[in-house]
Amino acid sequence: MRARTALIAAPLALALAACGGGADGGAKDSGGAERAARISVVRSDGLGDILVDGQGRTLYAFTKDKDGASNCDADCIAVWPALTSTSGTDAGKGVRAALLHEKRQSGGAVQVGYGDWPLYYYVGDAAPGDVNGQGLDGEWFVVGADGKLIRAGA
C-alpha cells in the first residue's frame, strides 16, 4: 500500500504545489495580501461533520503526532502536506474557535491545528469533499467538529 501511495504522491504533490498549497491554496484578497486560513465544518456522508479548509478540501490528523507537535517527516509531508498559514486562522461555520491553534514548526512554517491535532491535506484528494486519505495505514483520519478523530469508514 505504501509503495502505491508513493507512486501517486509525487505527481499529486506537484499538482497541489502548482495550485498554491498552504492555507486556502495561497488565497489572496483583492489587494494581493494573503488571507487567513479558514477552517469550516461540513457534513460528509458516512463520516458526519468533518473539518475542511476554505476551499472545501478535507483536513486530516496523524495519530503519531503528540502534544500538538507534528511528527510528519519530509517523506510524510510529500504525501500529507501540512495546513500552514502566514496570516492567522479564521473559525468558519461550525468550528469551535477555542480549539484552533497555530504552532511554529522547524523551518519557520506555522502549522494550523485543531484540538490536539496538527492538520494536513492528502495529495490523493483531487476535489473538495474527497476523503481518500481516511484510515490510510491506520494512522490518518479526518477530524470532527469536536476536535476528535473520526475513525468510521476506515
Score class of each variant (00 low, 15 high):
Y122Q: 02
F62P: 00
Y121E: 03
C72R: 00
R38C: 12
G153H: 14
E139A: 12
Y120W: 00
A74H: 09
I39K: 01
N132F: 14
G108N: 05
Q105V: 03
C76N: 00
Y122D: 00
K103C: 07
G94Q: 04
L83F: 06
T89I: 15
Y60E: 00
S70M: 04
K148L: 11
A127Y: 08
V110E: 15
G21W: 03
D130E: 14
D130R: 14
C72V: 03
R43D: 10
D75N: 11
G129L: 15
S106M: 08
V41N: 01
D75Y: 06
Y122H: 08
F62D: 03
G56N: 12
E34T: 06
G46E: 07
K66Y: 07
K66P: 00
A10D: 08
A36K: 13
R43P: 04
G21Y: 04
D24G: 05
A74Q: 13
G48W: 03
G129I: 11
D49F: 04
Y122F: 08
G124H: 05
W80D: 00
Y121P: 01
A126E: 11
L7Q: 14
Y114I: 05
G135M: 05
R43S: 07
E139C: 04
P118E: 01
V143G: 03
G32P: 02
G22E: 05
G92W: 12
D45W: 05
L47D: 02
M1T: 15
D125T: 13
A13S: 12
A145R: 11
G94P: 05
A91M: 15
Y122P: 00
S85T: 14
S70Q: 04
R2H: 11
S30M: 14
E34N: 12
D75E: 10
Q105D: 10
G88I: 11
P118V: 03
A36H: 09
N132G: 14
R35H: 07
K64V: 03
R151T: 10
G153S: 15
V142K: 01
A154Q: 08
G94F: 10
A154Y: 04
A78M: 07
V41F: 04
N71K: 10
